[in-house]
Amino acid sequence: MASPNLAKLALKYGPIVYTLAQKYGPQVVEQVLRQRDPAQKFVSNQRERGTARKQALAHAESVIDGAVQQVFHGGQAYWVVFSRNEPVGTHPHTTVPYDSLLLNADPARRVSPADLRRTVHLPRRPRR
């Protein structure tokens, strides 16, 4: 049940809120839509980042002696896929040559896909 004070406030300020909503409503909707675009770009970039890692792991598993290494170039993270210590691909794809991507990269930081998997095995309760 609504309180009597709420009913009084609705009767007192209802017409004012209604006129302001008619006047400023379209501007508020426009601002909300304008602010939604950067958030959607951020979410899609995060999704692509995770997808690139998964693609790199799948690629590394499909080659002989596959390994992956994360490198950064121009503020962007790239996963370089190696086969027998030779770079064979990058995820996400780029036109930057391997030499410039791996210029200051440490070869000791290469990891096999099996070591990089994020699978967590939880203990199960025994069945009765």
Rank of each mutant, 00 (worst) to 15 (best):
R109S: 11
T90N: 02
H73M: 02
P38C: 06
R125K: 10
E48Q: 15
T119G: 01
L103R: 07
P107F: 04
Y78P: 04
V43Q: 14
E86N: 09
A39E: 15
I64A: 06
A60N: 10
P26W: 06
L102S: 00
V28G: 05
H93R: 08
S83F: 00
P87H: 00
A77M: 11
R36H: 13
R36P: 10
V111K: 09
K41C: 11
R34C: 13
V80G: 00
S3G: 09
Q70G: 12
A7I: 13
N104L: 00
R110Y: 08
L103V: 09
Y98E: 05
H121W: 04
H93V: 08
L20G: 02
D37R: 15
D115M: 03
Y13G: 03
G66T: 12
R110W: 09
K8C: 11
R118D: 11
A39F: 15
E30C: 07
P92W: 04
F42H: 14
V29Q: 13
K54S: 15
N85W: 01
G14W: 02
P38F: 05
A58E: 13
V63P: 10
N45L: 08
I16W: 05
V120F: 01
L101N: 01
N104A: 04
A10D: 15
P15I: 03
Q40F: 13
E30P: 00
K8P: 05
F72Q: 06
M1P: 14
L57C: 12
S62A: 13
I64Y: 02
A67W: 08
S44R: 15
D115W: 02
Q22S: 10
G89N: 03
Q35C: 14
R125D: 09
S3N: 14
P126R: 14
G25R: 02
E48T: 08
Q46K: 08
L102M: 01
L57D: 08
V80Y: 00
A2R: 05
K23G: 10
P87N: 00
R124E: 12
N45F: 06
A52N: 02
R47D: 10
R47N: 12
L57G: 10
V29E: 14
V81M: 02
V28F: 08
S3I: 04
A56S: 11
A67I: 06
Y98L: 01
S44D: 15
S3L: 12
V29M: 06
V29I: 15
R110F: 07
G25H: 05
Q31D: 15
S100W: 00
E61Y: 05
V71R: 01
L6S: 13
A39C: 09
G74T: 03
